[in-house]
Design a protein around this nucleic acid. Structure first.
Lengths: 252, 252
DNA sequence: TAAGATTTGTTCGTATGTATC
DNA sequence: GGATACATACGAACAAATCTT
């Protein structure tokens, strides 16, 4: 009942119908990532269709990250866990033709990152806190030129990306990670943040450092407040960066 | 530059490589939705590959919503705008195997919906405000049984979905719409909200009604506060609904 | 290392379906 | 309705990858 509501099913191409049938089958059987799906030849027999048709169906599923295919003995088609990278890439496609501004991105970041920080207070292991501190080392000294500045900005975004992965809430984590991915991409492929700014570099580092302390101390409200200020600062910094966004497809 | 970083390109199958080449081509040429792509036969010539291989590549792009294909004269392959529904479905696949709780969903909703409401204050046309009021009519009287309750809850989620579409920020709008889509899906395919609760029905309606007034008056902070309370109420209501989530693939 | 077995990957030719004029 | 231009589908043969012995 998931896909078949349309009585006019004939109008969908066979590969699409096969792909939907397999999806439904995965749901019905409760299959999990790594579980084996019928091989090409069996699907040909089961659906009574040509090899090419079946293969096109598998490509549809492959593009969605739902199926992984391996050659050789013991190979075949397997249920695949959609990777975070792939999910981000697919979602980025959606925004490719939309006009996203930096302001749009920060409006969401300001809403989500403080909440994430608050929910992580007292939840991180020493190892995780150390990892965050280690990331900060890569921008311990001020950048001396635009290229270095970009590299540092990317590292600083990694700080947020890791934070996003540490939480329990996969939804919140994904959204935050997606935002940092977009910003990373923009920093790499466009000329965001061209001019080094020593004062802001210092402030940003102080925020992150204080954030680690608050997280270690388990002070959720402090963590929230620090992150909020951190986001507001970054947001102000880019107020003139109204530029367009999404100049490429994020690669999976 | 988007996909070719991997020198070990030979290990990717031909259809995948063709699909990536076409993606890059779209970016380089700055093609927009509706623009024509080379037809099958031309791609066969250009890439020097067999028809099936090219077709599998097109399926990969089709699954991502990047390409639309039409038969008949004047038909062919066209650049496609990824639809919101498809983007939601693809993203839902990612969460299918993850254990999302209702609490997770509401943690994000509480962070985003008030911000959305605030940003819409004074921005909506009378027609849009009327549409919201019209949606509320479908749950003007208290539900008398569980089935009716479910129907009303779905209508109430539509209120939020429309709100999400009204905003300027495509990112914020998509996230909020995605959350309501998940909740709608859960309401339809699982037994969420089984027992009618007259008091909460009344409160929820009052919130939405007040929200419309605040939006019309252009009072952003009032809109934010009302929505926040609305979300908190709904969140409390489901505190026992820890249940699993994502029992199917959302259909495109 | 090498050979064989197994499963997907790719090709090519042909035929059919579908939308436009 | 017929001609045209395009995608859709089929099937058989061969290539490549990878595991086992």
């Amino acid at each position: 009942m998931s896909h078949g509501e349309n009585l006019d099913a004939t109008r969908r191409s066979r590969p699409v119908r096969v792909a939907e049938a397999i999806k439904d089958w995965v749901v019905e059987k409760g299959l999990k990532p790594g579980d084996r799906l019928p091989g090409e030849s069996e699907l040909i027999a089961r659906f009574g269709m040509a090899k090419s048709t079946i293969r096109e169906a598998m490509r549809l599923l492959q593009a969605q990250g739902l199926v992984v295919t391996k050659t050789g003995p013991g190979g075949g088609n397997f249920v695949g866990q959609v990777s975070t990278d792939r999910a981000q890439a697919l979602l980025a496609n959606y925004f490719y033709f939309k006009k996203l501004s930096i302001k749009d991105i920060y409006q969401v970041r300001i809403a989500l990152e403080p909440e994430l920080a608050a929910s992580l207070a007292g939840q991180l292991s020493e190892a995780q806190l150390d990892e965050l501190a280690t990331i900060m080392i890569s921008y311990a000294t001020p950048a001396e030129n635009a290229a270095e500045e970009r590299a540092q900005h990317i590292a600083s975004l990694r700080f947020h990306a890791r934070l996003a992965e540490f939480g329990e809430n996969a939804l919140l984590g994904f959204f935050v990670a997606f935002l940092t991915q977009i910003l990373t991409d923009l920093t790499v492929y466009q000329r965001l943040y061209s001019e080094p700014n020593r004062e802001l570099w210092q402030q940003g580092r102080a925020h992150q450092s204080n954030l680690i302390s608050a997280l270690r101390a388990g002070d959720a409200e402090a963590a929230r407040a620090i992150m909020q200020e951190h986001m507001l600062m970054a947001s102000r910094l880019m107020e003139d960066q109204e530029a367009v966004v999404m100049k490429r497809f994020i690669s999976e």
